[in-house]
């Protein structure tokens, strides 16, 4: 368990997380490993976990009939995969497909929610970090939407 705690502490997402709260998270954590082309989760499945990626590459994508897999974004070491565990009724909206062999710490969603309800300080610390991730993802998505390279001039 101690080992898992130090791994969690090293992850960018929890880098400045209060030391005294880390053991609470460790209680919800497990070490996971995926091979290339494996799906970590599929759209419409129950969102049971959130993944702190330690190594590898995961594509968040959606299957579009006639177009195949459309990749929305790729996530790598230091990134967080999945927030549907936070939003009722807890179902995934996209597929997560492994592009390069991936190692991650999976945190159990139900466990985290319970701990957050019990300990609002921990809930606040966690949500603060998720909000930052969400905000930068939203900004990136907006920039992506603008399709800026489509209108680049000729020099």
């Amino acid at each position: 368990m101690e080992n898992l705690e130090s791994v969690l502490k090293e992850h960018a997402f929890l880098s400045d997380f209060p030391d005294e709260l880390l053991p609470v998270i460790v209680g919800c954590a497990s070490n996971v490993r995926y091979d290339t082309e494996q799906f970590i989760f599929h759209e419409s499945e129950e969102a049971k976990k959130v993944y702190l990626i330690r190594a590898g590459k995961v594509a968040v994508e959606i299957f579009v009939p006639g177009r195949g897999h459309v990749v929305i974004e790729t996530l790598e070491a230091g990134d967080v995969l999945g927030w549907s565990w936070l939003v009722p009724p807890y179902y995934w909206h996209f597929d997560a497909r492994v592009v390069e062999p991936t190692r991650a710490i999976a945190l159990d969603g139900e466990c985290l929610r319970k701990k957050c309800e019990e300990n609002h300080e921990m809930g606040y610390q966690l949500l603060k970090r998720f909000f930052t991730v969400l905000s930068s993802r939203l900004q990136a998505t907006r920039l992506q939407l603008m399709d800026v390279y489509g209108a680049k001039a000729d020099w």
């Binding site: 177009r67 195949g68 459309v70 990749v71 974004e73 790729t74 592009v99 390069e100 990136a140 920039l143």
Partner: peptide
């Protein structure tokens, strides 16, 4: 910015 599943590289701005 956008890719199909065949692309092995990064997707994102």
């Amino acid at each position: 910015d956008r890719a199909s599943g065949a692309w092995r590289g990064n997707v994102g701005v």
